[in-house]
Design a protein around this nucleic acid. Sequence first.
DNA 1: TTCTTTTTTTGATTTTAATCAAGGTTAAGC
DNA 2: GCTTAACCTTGATTAAAATCAAAAAAAGAA
Lengths: 258, 258
Amino acid sequence: MDKPQFDSELGASPVVRTESICRNCDRRFDSLCGVLNCDELDILSEMMEHQFFEAKDTIIYEEDEAKNVYNIAEGILRLTKLLPDGRRLVTGFLYPGDFVGLAFHDNYSYSVEAVTEVKVCRFPRLKLEALLKEIPKLESKLLGMMSNELKEAQDQMMLLGRKSPKERLASFLLNISQRKIEKSAGPARDKLLDKPNNSFELPMSRMDISDYLGLTIETVSRTLTTFTKNGIISTEGRKKINILNREKLEDIADGDLA
Amino acid sequence: MDKPQFDSELGASPVVRTESICRNCDRRFDSLCGVLNCDELDILSEMMEHQFFEAKDTIIYEEDEAKNVYNIAEGILRLTKLLPDGRRLVTGFLYPGDFVGLAFHDNYSYSVEAVTEVKVCRFPRLKLEALLKEIPKLESKLLGMMSNELKEAQDQMMLLGRKSPKERLASFLLNISQRKIEKSAGPARDKLLDKPNNSFELPMSRMDISDYLGLTIETVSRTLTTFTKNGIISTEGRKKINILNREKLEDIADGDLA
DNA sequence: TTCTTTTTTTGATTTTAATCAAGGTTAAGC
DNA sequence: GCTTAACCTTGATTAAAATCAAAAAAAGAA
């Protein structure tokens, strides 16, 4: 009677092993997958393929036909849009557990590029949409995730439309400090809402940050320098940030001062 | 045998008459309601109440508990967010057929105010969410609507983050010119995609426009004056706009010139 | 109607962040 | 390791939109 479940999951047949990819995933309790039981995960496994990308690779090209949707397993991606003359906006950064590509349009409306090494789970869009019809709780979960995205998009509009460069950077640093990247297993939970870290890596370049905040890289650089001089943050190398005075950063982010 | 359907819908009982509010709605083929059959519309009718607002009334207060959701029947609304010091952003304008308030958060994250006289259909949020579980096609429809909203939000982020004032105004005018406001009945269709009008009303104030485009009212006013002087548009009074050179306006909106 | 208030337009000035331009760092390739 | 290229920071200048200020136009009240 020892570990009967384990036996039945791995079994002797290689077929069963294949169907268990999703069951054995570190993130099976996160994200979209978190709402599914073992049998449903097996269905998902069958239509899923893992794909790996290097930093700077493009996963999705803006305007391409939307054939696939992706769930991020590991690594960080950016969503970008371009104007004809080359001006760029980063509309968001994607973290493990995030879902991308399901737009209900026939073409993608943004590019998706790897910021770090990335592992994604790729699903044929039409198959996943069919699955949505069969598993209502999947659709509910997706609706909830989209609702979150929409709220974040509105916050970002406020940032871009009405906040000063200092306020934008402060908001950004606080936001990133609250994201979890570790791939620890465990019961379902949100990608935010862990207690925030006061030390963290900025995986993206200054250019990515400026295109996300609607600024130039010079302004981003100068503003970070100002924060450092004011004792609000310290930096180690280019990527590592330490928040020294979170309260002040929060005040700045909310527009309560400068 | 004349009009048997009409008879069965109105019947003799006042109860049946009450349940037919949604069935007899001008917009029953639009929006969320468009996916429902008569019986389902009756269920919707039972939980729905019409509500009327004057211009400038507030329908939803930012941060209030999200008790209701709304479908716009007539009129135009704006979604607004405020910073502590009073800076304001209009995140969008809502037109008939638009849906608002279903955020899957316990509190609203924006205010909703009437720009014109408005008629809305109000639903208790919890009841509507329960109905979503029962009628999967409702959830699908909502998912599609949200997906559209998300795409629009990303376009607006590009506008706010990377476009010049002229480009913002051009994009805005083209966008408004493509919206339909008329309350004609007919089979389901999108709120956009009619052939665009070259003459239309701007129902909102210059302040609303500037808070939507991340500009000041002075810049909005000056930019409209410039367009007029360049023969791209003409104005009649404050609200009426005529597009005289749509092609040029499109070039400007896309950043192909100035 | 006239008077008042609100909204919009126009003009002058200031401020801010973009642009232009080097110089430093860090990372990557050989 | 060294060399080169990419990335980032800092400084000087410019340009663009915000701000400040006032006049004009429209809407609303009496």
